[in-house]
Each structure stands twice: as C-alpha cells, then as structure tokens.
C-alpha cells in the first residue's frame, strides 16, 4: 500500500520523475481546462442559456460571493488564484469516484506546493494592496516584539494548510483502500461518499483560509485601528 501517489512512479531519470501525482494533476488540468473551454466557447448573453453555462456561472458567482463575504473588496482580482485553488482541490476530490484514481491532493508534495503558493501570494497581494512598507510594518503590529511571532505564524499556518489538506485527503484514500480489502461491497461506497463530503469541505476550508490570509494582509492597516 502506497501512502502517497508520489510513490507511484511511472518514469524516473535522476532528479526528474514522472509519478502518479503529476499524471493525475495533468489529467485533472486537462479535463478542467478543456471542459471550461468547450462550455465557454458558446456563451450567450441573452436570457436563454445552456445548463452548462448556468452551472459555470453559478460556480463562478458563488466563488466571487464567498470571496466578497470574507471581506476582500475587489473579489474579481483574487478570483483567479482563490477560485483555481477551490476548483482544483474540489475536482481532485470529486474524481475519487473514478476507480484507480488517486487524488493529487493526497500527496504532501502537492499540498505543500499549494501552501507555498499561498505563502507567496499573501505577501504579493499584501504589498500590491498597501505597499511594501505598509505590508512589512504589519509584521510589527501591535508592537515590534511581535515580529518573530508573526513570522512563526506565517510559517506555521502554511504548514498547517499543507498538512491539514494532506491528512484529510490521504486518510480518506487510505480508509477506502483498507475498507476495500476488508469489506469490498457496501462500506467503501459509504466512505467514498463521506470522502467526497470531507474533500469538498477541505477545498472550502483551504480556499477560505487563503482568502482570510490575503484579506488580513491587504487590509492590515484598516483592521488595526489602535490599541
């Protein structure tokens, strides 16, 4: 039994290797991009539109609404990053219903990569939002003594993001694998359904937490009116 799809290696040459994480990631990317391209190729602006267009519009507007609810003033600016986070993690979870599929998010490498993206994106959005000085000053609020704690907080929350998602996804896949070996008929289906729910919740949590971090970085001055 593999603990992570990273261990499922198709090809390897020195540092480079082609493992199941990358392959399933590309497959997901292909399906998502091709599906979106196919649907958005025939978008209409009238009152009568296809159910697929309705679905995409519903998904996009819901994500925009969630980002706005978090407190980000210009949700469309963050839609590309946060929306893709949610859709990728959600799609990776939904695909677990396909036999033989292993979600890339069950790989700690993937979750670390996503957490690193968040780690980098937060200061970038923060700096573009309130300037370099303003963003750096936010680490010394309320007092400069808090600087190391803030830095530790950055690191620990990034690690928490990565491990939380990995743990949930990996455990779900592991439970299903174990149950398949014990009771191959009913329980795996129930646990797969539970895994779908858990995965969607994790996608939501990951995205919302990233949005909260970005919101905290972009409006740090506004959020700290004084002692």
């Amino acid at each position: 039994m593999r603990l992570t799809p990273d261990a499922w290696i198709f090809w390897e040459h020195g540092f480079f290797k082609l493992n199941a994480t990358l392959v399933f990631t590309w497959a997901l990317m292909a399906v998502m991009v091709l599906g979106a391209a196919l649907i958005t190729r025939r978008l209409v602006t009238g009152h009568q539109r296809s159910r697929w267009q309705n679905l995409l519009e519903m998904v996009v507007t819901t994500i925009v609404g969630q980002i706005k609810d978090v407190g980000l003033k210009e949700p469309r600016r963050y839609l590309g990053f946060l929306g893709t986070l949610f859709l990728f993690i959600g799609a990776a979870t939904l695909a677990t219903v396909i036999p033989g599929y292993e979600p890339p998010t069950a790989s700690l490498s993937t979750t670390v990569a996503l957490a690193l993206c968040v780690l980098v994106a937060v200061p970038l959005f923060g700096i573009s939002g309130q300037g370099l000085a303003g963003y750096l000053a936010s680490y010394m609020r309320p007092t400069p003594i808090m600087l190391p704690f803030n830095l530790i907080s950055e690191m620990s929350r990034t690690l928490a993001l990565a491990v939380r998602l990995f743990g949930n996804m990996m455990s779900g896949a592991m439970i299903i694998a174990i149950l398949l070996s014990i009771t191959p008929l009913v329980f795996p289906i129930v646990m797969t359904a539970l895994g779908l729910l858990t995965g969607m919740v994790q996608a939501y949590i990951f995205t919302i937490l990233a949005a909260v971090y970005i919101a905290a970085a972009t409006r740090n001055g506004e959020a700290a009116p004084g002692p």
Binding site: K17, M29, C117
Partner: peptide, 26 residues
C-alpha cells in the same frame, strides 16, 4: 513524504492552471 521535484512541478502546474482557468473560465 515530500518530493521536492514534485513540489516544484505542482507549483508550476498550479500557476499554469491559474492562467488557463483565467483565460478559459473566469
């Protein structure tokens, strides 16, 4: 559990996916 090549590749994959989704979806 962490394969740094995969980490780097996934970061690149994710950034490409962000660009593609912006281009074809959002």
């Amino acid at each position: 559990l962490i394969d740094w090549f995969t980490v780097g590749a996934q970061v690149v994959n994710f950034l490409i996916l962000v660009w593609l989704m912006k281009r074809f979806l959002y």
